[in-house]
Each structure stands twice: as structure tokens, then as C-alpha cells.
Design a protein around this nucleic acid. Structure first.
Length: 506
RNA sequence: GCGGCGUUGGUAAACCGGUUAAUACGCCACCCUUUCACGGUGGAAUAACGGGUUCGAUUCCCGUACGCCGUACCA
């Protein structure tokens, strides 16, 4: 029995979206469940698409949500390097080996010639002709050229690629861990480029070689890879590594509200973030919003993602990471794509905001106050959090719901106040303010409330008709926790000041 | 076009041949609360279509339709 080894293999071309994050999660859960190893491999074989900072960004995201890799370019490991660009020299020999065994060939076609071929062979019946069984003999490659010509071209250093020669085995199949048996007709698959003219491997070669060299036992990837699975299957076979081939699991896609695959580009079109963390494209300067900055707790986001495509068959919806590790089961992963529901995600975050102590939330909440120019005291913030957490869904909600605990409201809802206002209220509130302006009169919420009610009765007023005006004077509007909890928290002196200030402006 | 994969309320989904087809989010109403929330109760809302197989299909099989993904010297 061999050790379980899985890998997440992103290309550093942009932000990490929630589809990728979920792939990370499933990898992680599976690895931990089997006491295995989670490898992070950077697939940066396309030098033209390299984006500055993207790799660091990916690490930052994994760190934020606590899904650290066991082996990666950052921390190293026994199977490094973990960046494909640094493994460049390893790939050529395998490509050459495939040529030598007749499973691949050199192709000298220029990009222009390829374009011309696609143009020439294009028909309404076949809008995208392939470089493959039907066309390879009419192209410029070591199959159509004489050995001498090929040798000559190679010797003269003409740019060339190596392509896989798809076989005639017709049917090929494999057992996907999620979908079961999947069949392909190899004659319908094109001769994919394995080694590019710049000497870099394409994804197809690199993924197979590296999965082999890194002893990957289970390969999880998005469903968009299913159509190229036959190429990979054949590569494993042609390279003579069939016995070591990992088990594949093609994950269902996460869809946008329009039902199509989440695009790295149009993040903003959904009206909610699709990236784990804020991402700015260094080339274009375009900014994309992230879940972290939007105010999600990592545990909540992970929970959402875990359930998008998987459930344990019970009605349980809230799972800790440890529980997920224990209960995650690939055979219960659904086969169809799932639309991401931001409202439901907010609900999950709300649930997580209610868990644990208020004090534990302080480090999460504090930065959002600071961003609004409020530097809160930890202990005070903690009691505020306890008072308002149940009406918060996202972290910034704490500022909306709690700013008045720190600063007097800039504006008050006069309309609502006046609606409940009677001339005799003024005298009452003046008296109340005088009473409260002494710190000694502070007390618990219940004490304050009893006292308040007494004063009201003395003046022939009902407590009820005074509550809303008082609230509005203290917080500025019709929202917030119990009025006397607020008074107790901000103190009677501050409350008195706010009453007086409002009275003055009435 | 071809290939692959899908199709249970608006969304996520349970059920793996026999159910009044769960549940959660969202939505609506009511209760609680002289605020806003939380909570509680109730409600509207679903098996794409057509054939089989079967005593019996949402469940199994085959078509059709629709959707998505792929069809690059991108991953």
C-alpha cells in the first residue's frame, strides 16, 4: 500500500477563484483523510502568460484559508523543484523517448502554416479541423517527410515541436473516481503538442511526467480536463508507466449565475467576488474583489465550497475542517456543475460569526473598524461584538451595526424621531440627561431600564413611547441591540451627551 | 460540426424501484420584539421530453431536446 499523494497544480496566470479553491480543498481533505501528502506544483510552462506576483498570491490565499501544502516551491520537498519552469530540462528526454518508440513525432509547421491548414480544411461540417489522424500526413513533420529531410531540418536548427501520435486503438477508457467508466475514441483526438518550440512542455506532457516523478496517486482536477484525459492516458501507457498512473477524479465545475463556467476575467459581472482574495492584475491594473476582503471567515468559505458539489447525505450543513476531513467522500461528489449562490454563502458566514466567543472575533473584526478610522479597544470591541454579532453577515457589517458604540452618530433619523415625538418628551429627556450625566448613575441594562421606567411613570409617560426616540438619539436610527444594553455599554455620560445634542438640534 | 459530461423548486440538494419527493438559502405571511436582527410557525415553489424494463419508475436502459466543457506551440 503506497502513501497517498495528491497535488494542486495551478498556473500562475491570475487570481485564484473559488473553483480552484474548492479543488485545493478536496485535494487537502482527501490527503489528510488518508494521512497523505498534499503537493502544490506551479504549472508555469507558458512563458507568455506569466503574471508577476501570481504565485505569491496563490500561497497567500492558501495561507489565509489554512490549506497549507506539505510540499511546494516555497518549503521544498523531496520531489522538487515544484515549479515546472525549473524542471524544463527533464521533459525533453521523455518527449524524445516517445519519438524513439514511435509514439510521437517532430513537426516543423509554422504558426502560419497551422492557421492555413485550419483555414483550408475548414468546412461548415467541421469548423475546427484537427492536426491528427486525418491531416498529419499532409503537414510538415517527421511522419510525412523522409528521414533524411527530417534529419536535415533537425540538424539545421529549424524550430519544431514534438507531437503525440494518437494511436489507432480506437477505444480507450478509464474509471473516474466520480463519474465511473468514461470512454473515448482515440481516432477522434488530435495530435497534441507535447514539447513546444521553445523547449517547454505543454500541460499534457508536463502533467504526466510530473505526476509520475512526484509519485502522485490521485489526480483531482476540473471537469474541463475530461476531454484531454485520453491524451494523458495514452502518454502514461506509451511512457511505460501505466502501473503508476494516478486515479483520476474530474470535479464538477462551479458555475456563475448565468450557468457558465466561472471566468477569471469577468469577476465583477456576478456582483460578488469570485476570487479568494483581492487580486490586481499587474499588467492591466484591473482589480478583482476577494472573499477575504469582502468579510468572509475562511472556515465559512471552506464550508460553503465543501458543500458545493458534495454532501454527507444527512441534513448537516455546518462542518468544521476536521469534520470535513473525516467525512469527505469522493463517491458522494455530484456529477453536475453547481451554481454559486452568494446569498447562501452569506448565510454560512453569518452562522460562523455566531460561533465561539466574541473575543475570538476581535482580530477579524478590528481591521474593518480601523479601515474606517476607528481604533477600538479590544475588550470594548469584544463586548460590542457580542451585542451585534447576530445581525452581521459579513465582517464589514460590524462597522455598520456598531460604529455608534465608538462615535456619536453623525446624522439622526429625524423623521422617525419626530413621528413619535410629543412636546412633553423634551422635559423628560432633559431630566434624564441630567440624571445620566453623572457617571455614578451607570448600571446594568436592567437597572437602567427600571430606573428609566420609574422616571417615565413619575411624569405620567409610558416607557414604550420613549424607547424609540431614545434609541434614535443614541444610535441615529431604527436599528441596533437593546437600548439599555447600548446605554450600559457607551455609559450614561455619553448617552446624556447624545440626548442633549439631539435635543438642541430639534 | 465532432467528442465528452450533465439535466429533481430561483439556488444548493436528499432519496440510490414503492415517500404526501426531504432539508437549507432566498421569497411571502404571521408570532416574538414598542428598533433592526435573531428565533418560532406556516406558505408559495421542483423530478426536461418520449419510449422501453418492471406489478410498480424521480430512481434502471435507449433515444430526443437542452445546457456546459473541450476541440491552441493556454492551462
Amino acid at each position: 500500500m503506497s502513501e497517498v499523494r495528491v497535488r494542486f497544480a495551478p498556473s500562475p496566470t491570475g487570481g485564484l477563484h473559488i473553483g480552484g479553491l474548492r479543488t485545493v480543498l478536496y485535494n487537502y481533505l482527501f490527503a489528510k483523510q488518508h494521512q497523505g501528502t498534499f503537493v502544490l506544483r506551479i504549472e508555469d510552462t507558458d512563458q507568455t502568460r506569466y503574471v508577476e506576483g501570481a504565485e505569491e498570491y496563490i500561497h497567500k490565499c492558501l495561507e489565509w484559508c489554512g490549506l497549507q501544502a506539505d510540499e511546494s516551491a516555497l518549503q521544498g520537498g523531496p520531489f522538487g523543484p515544484y515549479r515546472q519552469s525549473e524542471r524544463k530540462e527533464m521533459y525533453r528526454q521523455y518527449a524524445e523517448q516517445l519519438v524513439a518508440t514511435g509514439h510521437a513525432y517532430y513537426a516543423f509547421d509554422t504558426p502560419e502554416e497551422l492557421m492555413k491548414m485550419r483555414e483550408d480544411f475548414k468546412t461548415s461540417d467541421n469548423p475546427s479541423p484537427q492536426y491528427g489522424l486525418a491531416t498529419r500526413n499532409r503537414m510538415k513533420n517527421s511522419l510525412s517527410l523522409s528521414p533524411e529531410e527530417t534529419k536535415h531540418l533537425l540538424a539545421s536548427g529549424v524550430a519544431h515541436v514534438i507531437r503525440i501520435k494518437m494511436g489507432n486503438e480506437e477505444k480507450i477508457s478509464f474509471n473516474d473516481m466520480i463519474r465511473g467508466e468514461v470512454h473515448f475514441d482515440t481516432r477522434l483526438v488530435d495530435d497534441k503538442v507535447l514539447l513546444k518550440a521553445d523547449g517547454m512542455p505543454t500541460y499534457h506532457l508536463a502533467v504526466v511526467v510530473d505526476d509520475y516523478l512526484m509519485k502522485i496517486t490521485h489526480a483531482f482536477r476540473g471537469e474541463e480536463w475530461l476531454p484531454s484525459a485520453p491524451v494523458h492516458l495514452l502518454l502514461w501507457k506509451y511512457l511505460g508507466w501505466s502501473d503508476n498512473m494516478p486515479r483520476y477524479a474530474h470535479l464538477p465545475l462551479i458555475l456563475g449565475s448565468d450557468g457558465s463556467k466561472l471566468s477569471k476575467r469577468h469577476g465583477s459581472k456576478y456582483g460578488f467576488p469570485i476570487f479568494a482574495m483581492n487580486w490586481t492584475n499587474p499588467k492591466t491594473g484591473e482589480k478583482e474583489a476577494g472573499f477575504a476582503e469582502r468579510g468572509f471567515l475562511p472556515a465559512a468559505l471552506l464550508n460553503v465550497l465543501a458543500l458545493l458539489g458534495w454532501n454527507d447525505g444527512t441534513e448537516q450543513e455546518l462542518f468544521s475542517l476536521d469534520e470535513l476531513i473525516q467525512k469527505f467522500d469522493l463517491s458522494r461528489v455530484s456529477h453536475s456543475g453547481a451554481v454559486f449562490d452568494f446569498e447562501k454563502a452569506k448565510w454560512f458566514n453569518h452562522q460562523y460569526l455566531q460561533m465561539g466567543s466574541a473575543a475570538a472575533l476581535v482580530p477579524q473584526v478590528k481591521p474593518f473598524f480601523e479601515a474606517n478610522g476607528i481604533i477600538p479597544d479590544d475588550a470594548y470591541l469584544s463586548t460590542v461584538i457580542g451585542l451585534i454579532r447576530e445581525r452581521c453577515h459579513l465582517l464589514p457589517d460590524f462597522v455598520d451595526q456598531g460604529h455608534f458604540f465608538f462615535v456619536a452618530p453623525m446624522e439622526i433619523d429625524r423623521e422617525s424621531l419626530l413621528k413619535k415625538w410629543k412636546p412633553e418628551h423634551a422635559r423628560f429627556f432633559e431630566q434624564l440627561a441630567t440624571h445620566w450625566s453623572t457617571a455614578e448613575n451607570n448600571g446594568t441594562a436592567t437597572e437602567l431600564e427600571q430606573n428609566f421606567e420609574m422616571m417615565a411613570t413619575e411624569q405620567g409617560l409610558k416607557k414604550g413611547e420613549l424607547m424609540l426616540p431614545l434609541r434614535i438619539m443614541l444610535v441615529g436610527g431604527k436599528f441596533g441591540p437593546g437600548v439599555f444594553d447600548i446605554v450600559q455599554t457607551i455609559g450614561t455620560v455619553e448617552a446624556a451627551n447624545r440626548i442633549l445634542a439631539t435635543l438642541k438640534g430639534l
